[in-house]
């Protein structure tokens, strides 16, 4: 591990931001607290996707499978077999990791290019949605209703928006730390080398399959954990939310607008766009449903044309230039 990782851990700024965020449930009105929970969940999703999409350069649309496993499968285990959601979450994280390794193997075995990888993973995601919609065990098209939340932590119940805000904050902070740890470790170097040039990476001893599989497994397991937390928060496991590629496409757009490769890009973009999208939806949802998607669409066009590496790398470049001059 590079010393930069430990420097971050010792940075008072990070702990101050976390401490400030942790106080938010104490003073935010309920409506905004709900937006806060959703924002943290999207930050976590964008960060866990960034391990594969940003660091590894592989535009995976299969992450809805992992989100679905965490949300739908864990809920089904609870409702059909009475398996505690903590245990179910771990089972789902392991299952998602195995599925991620399988996808990495398909990519390696068939030498998929970037476009083929995106299309194949989209196909996996669509198949996953069809399986959920057609299988009663997973709730089918009508979804699954989780038991009411009584605040029993041992049963993975966090007792309302405050509790879920803190849970989502811990998960988002964990995803950030995992990203930062990977960037400062050999795996981060290997993934960036693979992303930039697979042949050159192999020529300096980087194992393609092993590193892609590790990245996919970590990313998939984190996404499944987020899926369980998100499902328990909304209490209704809607297959059109948790098993549909739509959420992941939204996450990909957010991460791309923010800038891939560092943890800050996806995090800052989610921090700005999710509350913005929710406020648009809250205020204009009745007259213009889906307006926030239009906003994302316009933003991604603007960002790609004006700052192809994304918002945060662009801001960092400008700051570096100012420091130099």
């Amino acid at each position: 591990m590079k010393p930069e990782f430990f420097t971050l851990l010792r940075s008072p700024a990070i702990w101050l931001v976390l401490a400030f965020a942790a106080t938010m449930p104490l003073w935010l009105p309920p409506y905004y607290l709900g937006i806060g929970v959703l924002t943290l969940i999207y930050i976590a999703m964008a960060l866990s996707w960034n391990i594969v999409g940003g660091l590894g350069g592989q535009i995976s649309l299969a992450h809805s499978l992992f989100l679905g496993v965490g949300a739908v499968f864990t809920s089904a285990l609870l409702l059909k077999f009475g398996i505690n959601m903590w245990v179910g979450m771990l089972i789902s994280a392991a299952l998602a990791a195995i599925m991620g390794v399988g996808i990495a193997w398909v990519d390696f075995r068939f030498k998929l290019g970037h476009l083929s990888f995106a299309l194949i993973t989209l196909a996996f995601a669509e198949i996953g949605e069809l399986v959920v919609l057609g299988w009663d065990f997973l709730g089918g098209a009508s979804g699954l209703y989780l038991p009411s939340d009584k605040g029993d932590l041992l049963a993975f119940q966090f007792g309302g928006a405050k509790g879920y805000f803190w849970l989502a904050l811990v998960i988002a902070a964990g995803c950030f730390l995992v990203n930062f740890a990977i960037i400062n470790s050999p795996l981060g170097y290997y993934l960036r080398a693979i992303r930039d040039n697979e042949n050159a990476a192999q020529a300096v001893g980087v194992a393609l399959l092993r590193n892609k599989a590790i990245a996919m497994a970590i990313s998939a397991a984190l996404t499944a954990i987020i899926g369980t937390a998100y499902a328990r928060y909304v209490a209704f496991v809607d297959p059109y939310l948790f098993a549909s590629p739509a959420v992941v496409i939204e996450v990909v757009l957010i991460a791309t607008i923010g800038g891939l490769g560092t943890p800050f890009g996806p995090m800052v973009a989610a921090l700005l766009l999710v509350p913005f999208g929710e406020l648009i939806r809250g205020n204009f949802g009745g007259v213009a449903p889906g307006l926030h998607y239009l906003v994302y669409g316009v933003l991604i066009v603007v960002v790609i044309l004006s700052m192809p590496r994304g918002l945060v790398p662009r801001i960092m470049d400008v700051m570096a230039r100012r420091r130099a001059s």
Partner: peptide
Amino acid sequence: VQVFADMTVLEAVTAA
């Protein structure tokens, strides 16, 4: 020449 375009020179050689 196959460079790692998004790395610095030091990072590229470190990866090796």
